[in-house]
Design a protein around this nucleic acid. Structure first.
Lengths: 106, 106
DNA sequence: ACCACTATATAGTAAAACAATGTAGTAGAA
DNA sequence: TTCTACTACATTGTTTTACTATATAGTGGT
């Protein structure tokens, strides 16, 4: 699906956090996961800016490790603040989604 | 609910269009409708910028009429382009919402 | 050597929502 | 009659976020 840019604003952060919460991962993998999920337009640059933002907010722990197939990978995991932030994100998302359904069915 | 700013980006346009599609209305009424709906943080300035944007995109027909309780009101209705745009919005929203549910339940 | 794939990063731009402020009309109270 | 509250629209400037384009770099195959 294309043209989701504006709708994704605000959601992408949560989407990335949620994916990381399933287990340690890194930018390149996340990018391809999102594209496979159906967010075709997502490019690497976007994911890396999200990750650096989340890191700057103190929501992730980071560890660089070698890869056998290319340059070093930067592995991310949620920390406690990240878990809390993610929970809060879902509360807001659920609120919005419920209101949207309500609006649509009026 | 507060702090929805970023999540609202991209959705607010659709929300406003959807509300207008229920019948002719104007900015001030829309603002208070949204606040009553639960989007507490929405202020008039935001709604007017959305309306002017939608108008500029050619999605609305506009008519100014007097009011007995204040200055003139600017009444909006969806035109054919607006209906099409709204339909497209819901397709994108449904896609996103479905993916979000999928992500969350993984 | 060259190319494809893997992997991270950043500078610049555009879009959208908010904050703050200004302008105006109506009506009721002091 | 002046002031206050409510109604109503609009604009300027700021922040946040995602995209575009580009740069850098490691690995492996031809």
């Amino acid at each position: 699906m294309q043209g989701l840019t504006e709708l994704l604003k605000g959601s992408l952060e949560g989407i990335v956090l949620q994916h990381i919460s399933h287990g340690e991962t890194y930018g390149y993998e996340i990018t391809h996961y999102l594209i496979d999920l159906g967010f075709e337009d997502i490019v690497e640059g976007t994911v890396y800016t999200v990750l650096l933002r989340l890191e700057k907010k103190g929501l992730l722990t980071v560890e660089r490790r070698k890869s056998t197939v290319g340059p070093q990978r930067k592995f991310y995991q949620l920390n406690a603040a990240g878990e809390a932030y993610l929970q809060d994100f879902w509360i807001k998302w659920d609120f919005l989604a419920q209101k949207m359904t309500q609006l649509k069915e009026d």
